Amino acid sequence: MTINYRKVAIVGCGFVGSATAFALMQSGLFSEIVMLDADMAKAEGEALDISHGVPFSKPCDIHAGDYDDVADSSIIIVTAGAAQKPGETRLDLIKKNVGIFKSIIPEISKRNFKGILLIVANPVDILTYAAKQLSGLPDNRVFGSGTVLDSARLRFNLSEHLGVDPRSIHAFIIGEHGDSEFAAWSSANVSGVEISRFCEMRGYFHDHDVAKDNIADEVKNAAYDIISKKRATYYGVAMATKRICEAIIRDEKSILPVSSIQHGRFGLNDVSLSIPVIVGKDGIESEIPFSLNDEEMKKLRESAKTLKEVIKSCDLDVSEE
């Protein structure tokens, strides 16, 4: 089947799926957006509502559909899953959402899908691994939104602290998109200037480590804070998903910390987590020589261990190292 590079599908029309469709409608990246949901009326209503904004944007056919309608999509974005509740960790969602994926992913793969499967539902690392196992698609074409949003939150918080444009900040959150994630401070910089040195330039001469720890904790707890206030997060992740789609559709070769299956990098195997990679029209195109110090390596391995322990409880035929 020929891929339609101007077509995207979104499976799941809850807060995240609908916000993503709205962001993509405004982006002009696609001329067709297909929305799927277990509740067809919900998909139809969201598609109709978003369609009414098309006269203020660029031409785009936005409609509800079924799995037969999405087989030729360039990207299928899966946001379907149970919502994270106040007080509930992302990993608490695992068994419910793996069960949902066991009904969704085979429906996609049986239609000889040739595009990219982008997982956005939580817990995204576990569900990315599940999608790979259930779909049989090549690793480069199955990946998750990972810590793209977390890294954006880090850059935003740093920009507030340092009084500088967040687009000039280069810093990543890596590992799990969740409680074991961490900031890779050893490689963080502001347009080539090391973070601690830039802090001093801004008048912060002491307690750099304390400030960095506080900022990293704010990033890690951002979702919990938002959920406690408004019950869900969706605008930020919708923008992160749009950014990933831009990198794919425009073949940008952008470096993004998406969640991908690991095969030996940093000694990690049979787990999906976020380390920066190059993303383009073929999905994940290559790794980059990303460096970590000893403390960060320890945190990454601990994050991977946490995820692997959960994976083993999910009946996904995980191979042993």
Rank of each mutant, 00 (worst) to 15 (best):
Ile169His: 10
Ile215Ser: 08
Gly146Met: 02
Val271Pro: 07
Asp179Ala: 10
Val310Arg: 01
Gly178Cys: 00
Glu88Ala: 10
Gly81Pro: 01
Ala43Pro: 04
Leu154Ala: 05
Val148Phe: 08
Lys42Ser: 11
Glu46Tyr: 05
Glu194Cys: 06
Ser168Lys: 14
Ile169Val: 13
Val54Cys: 03
Arg167Leu: 14
Leu48Phe: 13
Arg301Val: 07
Val8Phe: 02
Asp39Gln: 03
Pro257Leu: 08
Pro106Thr: 05
Asp294Arg: 10
Met297Glu: 14
Gly45Ser: 10
Ala131Gln: 01
Ser319Glu: 12
Pro123Arg: 01
Pro59His: 06
Thr89Gln: 06
Gly65Gln: 02
Ala64Gln: 04
Ser168Leu: 13
Val11Asp: 04
Ile50Val: 10
Ala121Trp: 09
Asp209Phe: 09
Lys299Val: 07
Asp179Trp: 08
Val98Ile: 13
His206Trp: 10
Ile50Glu: 08
Arg6Glu: 13
Leu29Met: 10
Ile278Met: 09
Glu107Lys: 15
Arg231Cys: 04
Ile215Gln: 03
Glu320Gly: 04
Ser51Tyr: 01
Ser109Ala: 15
Tyr234His: 14
Asp213Trp: 00
Ala211Ser: 09
Tyr204Ile: 13
Cys60Asn: 01
Ser31His: 11
Pro123Asn: 03
Ser313Pro: 05
Val34Ile: 15
Ala80His: 00
Val210Ser: 08
Glu287Trp: 11
Gly175Val: 05
Glu88Tyr: 07
Glu32Ala: 04
Ile173Val: 15
Asn112Gly: 00
Phe15Val: 07
Ile284Cys: 07
Lys299Glu: 12
Ser303Gly: 07
Leu158Ser: 04
Lys308Trp: 01
